[in-house]
Design a binder for these strands. Structure first.
Lengths: 418, 418
DNA sequence: ACAGTTTCCCGTAAATGC
DNA sequence: TGCATTTACGGGAAACTG
């Protein structure tokens, strides 16, 4: 199990993780033990080649990394060893090049069989994974995992990020929707994806499918903003996961709407109609915009400053909507939010989601009154037996091949689907 | 320097600290080096005794703990070595007894002199200190440091907490006031201390001086509350440090007033007169109570639920006072807080302390409206030379004694005054 | 079982490295 | 010098351990 249970294949240095090595074939009942060692593969090329180059960044396993595969460790019909409390640390004396956080590396494992299988060397490896040193790198690391799995079928394409291939918008948008359905319980509809596509690619999306670069997706900042497209999207995903889950799952958050579209949708609606959208200017923010008619009959739009995780952890979003008040010139506070777009009465939509006491009767506002008018794994077995001269070969070549092909190394029991 | 710069003599395991060993005498210019080693003293009795017992809890220094005292390290006219990045860890294989967090222990240091002073052994030690494993133990640890320093002049009374002596209320109250003046910039006045004394001791305080036990001060819970007296007081100190410093320093927080006293003070005052007091039921909370007259002419007292660090970090306290509104039956919100007790107009008192925009004109309340009607070193040198048979004594006995008496060990440059 | 302690690790801030 | 990355550690919560 990697450090973040929800995000496999990402390991943070200094934080414990778990891995399991399995022998996929049922062996004849012989009385021997397998000594298994888990190591971090610091070499550039594939396993089993006759020579290798050390990578520019190297890691090692700090903790106990050898275990004996016990006959009693049968689980699901195969021999396995689980390594717990493994911890990764970077080697500090490597040549100066500090790579980016998207470096893909391999966790390898080797088996020595004794006494009967003595001198037979077996090796397997995990899927490529990302090493980070701080949770602040988790979004970037996850972007790498997604991009890799979207564009490579090879289980061990370690040079992938040297020249990452592009993704078509149809591929990418499907994956983005998948992220929302996996982590937030509800995916993205066509309108939401269209807005995202336009944000990422401009009007190009509408003119057929388009190729998106890795850089545009996760490295370059959105023009005029201090964050990349994925950083922005991930901040919203996190906001939903932590503070908006029920509202999101009820499909009450339109979320991804441009301000132009927002106005177009609201302008012909009943006064007091509102919709919820994510902030495009700040990371992890959600606002509401409502329509009203001024005395002269003009249509007016009002928005509130985005609510971020800090404000939402003080009061759940549904309660904010219920308790939101505008103090009109008459001095009487009133809630301007009447209908969730297109025309659902507010309490009908949010009623079940209210948490704390509603405000009524004599009330004390113990909180500020602000002036604000505008919105400012798939499991993969890979083995590479090395032929070593064995003085007394304990198995036939056929038996050996079979054994080699069924030694499996999972970094997590959770499968990883893309 | 210990882990918490403001609270010396408390070291948290796994967190870096700094210490300095100084040779207080100016040595004749000889060409030798002193190798100094810092260790954690895990023995029961004083330095230099012929035998010792291991303590039930033992710690050791994880990191590099030897350094050579260089001739060039002269600072303030004496030889010194500074140890940085020291880290403490508990020995895990000791006998089962887990002691409490108030264990006092010693950091020791020994010097080997070579080549001229070869075979001469010198040793010094720090003041007693407290080891904790989590910042949640900091208040308890600090209570120990205070109690020790209040009641012992001995620099190394390690058995003190086996049977801690009592403190007189006059001693203790002086120290409590000192804590507030040190950490919050303003001490406690007689009325505040009287309230604290009564809380701790009942009416006994008024009948002359009284002895307070260590247990009553920091171990036993306040009757009916899930926290001790010091836990409660420290939570308030922390609240002031983080969120109330300017208001506290302007002396606008009466703070320590019983509810009875509060009512007695307010009842004859102008309606809208209010005062600020700390919550006695919750840790780290502050409320305000104001007086008003009901239609029938009765005096009424209203309080708000205590503000805690979470709410105060959303909006500073002065702004809360400015923006606080009661929505009367007429529906018009109004601020009931008019005069800070005894009769200071609110804005006159808090005007300078307001931070954000005041609320006026058309206002949006983006925050909840709650229904709430009631308050529901000194530097110490200690050396114990051991006489070792030296084949070629490089110094006269007099010189040696002088050297021994002037080897000093500070755990911090910050002096510690009680 | 429970209560006092410790461990774990996120998330912010500061330090470091290139 | 500035940005990318790591380290430091407070703080909340889970895990531990007698």
């Amino acid at each position: 199990m990697p450090t973040h249970p929800q995000k496999p294949l990402i390991i943070k240095t200094g934080v414990q993780f778990t891995t399991k090595v399995r022998l996929l074939v049922k062996l004849p009942e012989v009385d021997y033990q397998l000594k298994v060692k888990t190591t971090f593969d610091n070499f550039e090329n594939t396993l089993g080649a006759s020579f290798s180059l050390l990578r520019s960044r190297q890691f090692f396993i700090l903790t106990n990394n050898t275990k004996v595969m016990d006959i009693e460790d049968y689980s699901n019909g195969c021999l396995s060893v689980e390594f717990r409390h493994l911890q990764l640390k970077e080697k500090k004396y490597t040549n100066g090049t500090k790579g980016n956080e998207a470096v893909f590396v391999l966790l390898g494992s080797s088996c020595f069989c004794s006494p009967m299988l003595h001198n037979v060397f077996l090796q397997t490896c995990s899927l490529p994974l990302v090493v980070i040193s701080n949770v602040s790198q988790l979004p970037g690391g996850w972007a790498s995992v997604m991009w890799y799995n979207l564009l490579t079928d090879e289980p061990r394409n370690l040079g992938f990020f040297g020249n990452p291939t592009r993704a078509s918008w149809s591929q990418l948008s499907e994956m983005l929707s998948w992220q929302f359905s996996t982590f937030a319980g509800r995916g993205l509809n066509k309108e939401q994806l269209d807005m995202l596509g336009e944000k990422l690619l401009g009007q190009l999306v509408s003119c057929g499918d388009y190729q998106v670069s890795w850089s545009k997706f996760a490295k370059e900042n959105i023009p005029g903003k201090p964050f990349s497209f994925w950083m922005w999207l991930d901040s919203i995903l996190e906001l939903i996961k932590k503070h908006l889950l029920p509202v999101w799952n009820e499909n009450y958050i339109m979320g991804f709407v441009s301000k132009e579209m927002e106005r177009a949708l609201l302008k012909d609606r009943e006064p007091g109609t509102f919709l919820l959208r994510f902030s495009e200017s700040h990371l992890g923010g959600i606002t509401f915009t409502w329509v009203e008619h001024s005395d002269s009959g003009d249509v007016k739009f009002n928005s509130v400053e985005p609510y971020t995780k800090n404000r939402l952890s003080a009061l759940p979003f549904a309660d904010i909507i219920r308790d939101y008040k505008v103090i009109s010139n008459g001095g009487v506070p009133e809630n301007p939010l009447k209908f969730l777009y297109p025309d659902i009465p507010k309490d009908e939509a949010f009623g079940r989601l209210y948490n704390s006491q509603p405000s009524k009767g004599k009330m004390l506002t113990s909180d500020p009154i602000a002036l604000s008018l505008s919105d400012s794994s798939r499991s993969e077995a890979s083995t590479t037996p090395r032929s070593c001269p064995s003085p007394e070969p304990p198995m036939t070549p056929g038996e050996f091949d079979m054994l080699s092909e069924h030694l499996c190394f999972d970094i997590d029991t959770v499968s990883f689907l893309f």
